[in-house]
């Protein structure tokens, strides 16, 4: 007796929403990245569950590409955060008004 596909979709929707609430709630830029990782993980769970549901391997392969892009994104994002910290002495997104006037 396997767990139906709907439960996995429900779980990954919950995880995605927790990540989205975290992005809106936290003010620390590093925490924002962690919440984005939570959301990406929720999507990965959907891919793998759909691969089993449809009986095709493509979902699992796409998860590899998502993980790869997530790794690149984290590396670039964290180095940008460090560069911002060097110039502003803060990673609080309320302090960063570079693009506002």
């Amino acid at each position: 007796m396997t767990v139906p596909f709907g439960w996995y979709l429900f779980l990954s929707a919950l995880l995605f929403v927790i990540g989205a609430v975290g992005v809106l709630r936290r003010r620390n830029a590093i925490l924002l990245f962690m919440c984005i990782e939570l959301m990406l993980n929720a999507v990965n769970l959907t891919f793998v569950a759909a691969a089993r549901h449809l009986g095709q391997l493509d979902g699992q392969l796409f998860v590899f590409l998502v993980i790869l892009v997530a790794a690149a994104e984290v590396a670039i994002g964290l180095s940008i955060i460090i560069a911002i910290y060097k110039s502003h002495r803060s990673v609080d997104v309320d302090d960063l008004k570079l693009l506002k006037w």
Binding site: L45, A49, R52, Q60
Partner: peptide
């Protein structure tokens, strides 16, 4: 752990 139960050990 979910991936293992879903038949995706490599993932």
């Amino acid at each position: 752990g979910f991936y293992v139960t879903l038949g995706a050990p490599v993932v």
